[in-house]
Design a protein around this nucleic acid. Structure first.
Lengths: 200, 200
DNA sequence: GGATGAAGGTGACAATTGTCATCCGGAAAA
DNA sequence: TTTTCCGGATGACAATTGTCACCTTCATCC
């Protein structure tokens, strides 16, 4: 089967490609260093599968999966990620990903996952099956937006003018987010949201 | 030459070990998933070199390098890291590391670096040579300590009682840190310090 | 000894942040 | 149509955070 490897960290991308290529039934026909490049490559090279990192520049792996789904591209997606965050997993499943495994698994498991997916089965790291039951993202669009700007170190006032709101409203959203996440202040809230993959 | 690979992310650790082992002159005699395990392994297996990640559980790669230096262990250290942070680089050099490269380099470069170091030369990613000239950590011990607690989402008051200081003093340290780092507030300061590897 | 300066420590004050009660407008239910 | 509900929005208030001018201690240099 023909696969593409999309992963921004050069060493892992190269190592993974080399090892997968050693397998008799797998041929790596392309390597992408960011999401946009991956999408482009899938559309021109038409691989059977794509091994996709989530955290990448330009477009995240999840963005790419969603784009493929929208354009009804037949290329199967196997997500490969460092973090077992419930938000990531849920979004990946909704975006039609057929495999989801952690970068902690050995390469042999990745190869096995590729074969499973190619055969029409799903492949999910056991650690992640549990994640399925975890909480949904409790933040509204607005709250997420404000929290993301706060993460960049902006003050409430700056966030307000960036979003054309009053300062009070911004503080209000932050306050709601803090309570929903059971945090003590905005820093705590940012950490809590990130841990679950609820920002981005 | 006999080497050990210390890296917490399973997939990269396995892939790297497999590929290095394919080289005629390199033999991977051990793999460690955290710093403590790496140190233990170096002392019992006595490899020529160790490929060492920085961010690992229990002991960071830099902690291990420092421990080896203190005990005058002859094992050479090649640091392998995601981030080009000046603080990391400077600390690694002081700890006697002989190689320092980014996880963006291809595996072939890692193999070349191992040979260079084994031959008594240094091996440093070109991106990092510049880093040598970058700013030293401007934060005092106290400021770093306070900033690290702030990063966990603690309020000034909580930090104060944790360190047996008055609230005012803590705010004072944070204020100094904010100014030294040219940040707008504590969140910004935390981000700036982390970017340079000045916390930990 | 006395001057100098660096690092740690303090409280007063101003600015920013977090909380709350409340308001508004549109969609869904009655 | 009226009612109810809910997300979005607001300003008043209190708590927390950031700044500043000023002490203290202790080592260093004349």
């Amino acid at each position: 089967m023909k696969v593409i490897v999309a992963e921004d960290q050069g060493m892992l991308r190269g190592a993974l490609s080399a090892l997968l290529d050693l397998e008799d039934d797998i041929e790596v026909i392309g390597q992408a260093a960011d999401g946009a490049e991956a999408l482009e490559m899938i559309r021109t090279l038409r691989p059977d599968l794509c091994v996709m990192d989530i955290e990448m520049p330009k477009m995240s792996g999840l963005d790419v999966a969603e784009a493929l789904q929208k354009s009804k591209d037949p290329c199967g997606v196997v997500i490969l990620t460092t973090f077992s965050r419930s938000g990531y997993f849920q979004r990946a499943m909704r975006a039609g990903a057929r495999g989801f495994l952690l970068k902690d698994s050995p390469v042999s498991e990745l190869a096995a996952a590729l074969r499973d997916v190619q055969a029409g089965r799903r492949a999910v790291s056991p650690e992640l099956a549990l994640t399925f039951w975890e909480a949904e993202n409790p933040l509204t669009e607005r709250e997420r937006e404000v929290l993301k700007l706060a993460r960049e170190g902006l003050s409430s006032g700056e966030i307000a003018s960036r979003l054309f709101l009053s300062g009070g409203t911004v503080r209000n959203y932050l306050s709601e987010a803090i309570q929903k996440l059971e945090a003590k202040n905005r820093i705590d809230a940012i950490a809590a949201a990130e841990k679950n993959g609820w920002l981005d």
